[in-house]
Amino acid sequence: MNFERMITELGFTTTAPVGLHSYLVVAAILFSMGLASCLLRKNAIGILIGIELMLNAAVLNFMAFWRFSGGVGGGAGPMAAIVLMVMAAGEAAIALAIFLNLFYNFTSVDVEQASNLEG
């Protein structure tokens, strides 16, 4: 089924057709926000959120390129997206476990304080 037709039949109207570059722009914005969050936040949870954002930007890119390339490579795009989402879930679980330990040791989740590994 055509994606534009589906949107139209659902009652949405568009002034300009949504192209690949729109997706890429959105993904770039998402990625930048995630990166900024990683770099600027002190809170470990915030950094985790930033990482999730960047991952999702990547997922968005995968889907967008798959969609606009006309399904080249079979279901590779959605497959990659699903793998990434599962990976992100696992990563979040591990990261939260690390943060718990961090919290036990430093009574905060401020990453600036955990600088014991300085060479």
Binding site: V111, A114, S115, E118, G119
Partner: peptide
């Protein structure tokens, strides 16, 4: 010398990897 890179600050690592 190389140990200077090892700041222990996670953000620096981020910047480095980016």
């Amino acid at each position: 010398r190389a140990s200077a890179l090892q700041t222990g600050k996670i953000k620096a690592y981020f910047v480095f990897s980016m």
